[in-house]
């Protein structure tokens, strides 16, 4: 059974081609029979897919608040159903912002503490390996990859933070906090571990020519998760 991964495109999304390229290249290396395709934001059902990525960018321009309009797209309702049924979902950067706005992940992302856009490579620690994005990694593993955002300062109330910690929902932490995120959080997941959001860009760290490889194990984990989803009985 060949896994199908959809990469959602809202008007204003801009990392969709990069995610398709990185995932396709990795699937080719692993000889995984995965197909990666673009999914338009007007889509009403995602049940044909085995994994969904919300890539980075500025969905609908993000003039109001990142993700605030994207949450009303019909694809977002379909995504909620797909996630509730256990489908693997990963939101990268703007995708993470959309997932929090849509209530699929707890917390919110506010402006960086420095009040500037930040594009640079950061060090990360893997804090949970039970998710669709980190299944192939080890606890405490250190990674380097780029961040590229203005609104990546993760915040939530104390009760939510306690719950995230208690339920092993903090997926990635920054080694040096670049944006003021609470508890150095760079990525979180839902209780089931099938919905993950992160600010760093793994697709930008899959090739030595452009400088880094540490994103590859994350995306490989997603390919594995999608592969498993594809082999589930319908």
């Amino acid at each position: 059974m060949s896994a199908r991964i959809g990469v959602v495109v809202f008007p204003g999304t801009n990392c969709e081609h990069d995610v398709v390229k990185a995932l396709s290249a990795l699937a080719g290396e692993e000889a995984l029979a995965a197909t990666v395709e673009l999914v338009w934001h007007g889509e009403r059902s995602l049940s044909q897919l085995d994994g969904v990525v919300l890539p980075g960018g500025f969905a609908h321009g993000d003039y109001l608040r990142p993700g605030a309009i994207a949450r009303f797209s019909s694809v977002t309702d379909a995504l909620a159903r797909f996630a509730a049924e256990g489908g693997p979902v990963v939101g990268i950067c703007n995708g993470f912002q959309v997932l929090t706005e849509a209530g699929l992940l707890p917390g919110a992302l506010q402006k960086n503490s420095g009040l500037r856009f930040v594009c640079k490579s950061v060090g990360l620690r893997v804090c949970s390996t039970r998710t669709v994005l980190t299944g192939a990694l080890s606890q405490g593993q250190r990674l380097r990859m780029p961040i590229n955002h203005f609104e990546g300062n993760y915040t939530c109330d104390q009760r939510t933070l306690d719950r995230l910690r208690a339920e092993d929902c903090v997926v990635l932490r920054y080694e040096e906090n670049p944006n003021g995120s609470v508890d150095d959080i760079a990525g979180v997941c839902n209780a089931a571990g099938n919905v993950v959001g992160l600010m760093p860009h793994p697709e930008r760290a899959c090739d030595m020519l452009t400088g880094a490889l540490d994103g590859a194990p994350l995306l490989r984990s997603l390919l594995d998760a999608a592969d498993q989803h594809a082999s589930l009985p319908a």
Binding site: A22, C119, R204, C206, D207, T210
Partner: peptide, 27 residues
């Protein structure tokens, strides 16, 4: 870098050599 950290200089996965060197190199 105070300047170029505010710019996305990596989109499209082409930036082999970004800001700060003699020339930028793009795939």
């Amino acid at each position: 870098s105070w300047v170029y950290r505010q710019y996305d200089h990596q989109l499209f996965l082409n930036t082999v050599e970004g800001p700060g060197g003699d020339a930028a190199v793009l795939r």
